[in-house]
Amino acid sequence: MTREKALFETSDAAAEAEADARADSDVRHGRMISHDAVKRWLSSWNTARPLPRPRVGE
Results as ranks from 00 to 15, higher is better:
1 M>W: 10
2 T>C: 08
2 T>K: 14
3 R>I: 14
4 E>V: 12
4 E>N: 14
5 K>I: 10
6 A>Y: 13
6 A>H: 14
9 E>D: 14
10 T>Q: 13
11 S>K: 08
11 S>Q: 08
11 S>H: 10
12 D>W: 04
15 A>R: 10
15 A>I: 03
15 A>D: 05
16 E>A: 12
16 E>R: 12
17 A>D: 05
17 A>I: 00
18 E>P: 00
18 E>V: 03
19 A>S: 07
19 A>R: 10
20 D>Y: 02
20 D>V: 02
21 A>M: 07
21 A>V: 02
21 A>L: 08
22 R>Y: 01
22 R>D: 03
22 R>L: 10
23 A>C: 03
23 A>K: 12
24 D>G: 09
24 D>W: 00
25 S>M: 09
26 D>W: 08
26 D>I: 00
26 D>C: 07
28 R>F: 03
28 R>C: 02
29 H>R: 05
29 H>Y: 02
29 H>S: 08
30 G>P: 06
32 M>H: 05
33 I>W: 02
33 I>K: 01
34 S>F: 02
34 S>A: 06
35 H>N: 08
35 H>R: 11
35 H>M: 07
36 D>E: 14
37 A>D: 02
39 K>D: 10
40 R>T: 04
40 R>D: 06
41 W>G: 01
42 L>D: 06
45 W>G: 13
45 W>Q: 13
46 N>E: 15
47 T>M: 10
47 T>A: 08
47 T>G: 06
48 A>I: 07
48 A>P: 11
49 R>W: 10
49 R>Q: 15
50 P>K: 04
51 L>C: 03
51 L>E: 13
52 P>D: 09
53 R>N: 04
54 P>H: 07
54 P>W: 08
54 P>D: 06
55 R>P: 02
55 R>H: 11
56 V>D: 01
58 E>S: 10
58 E>V: 01
58 E>H: 01
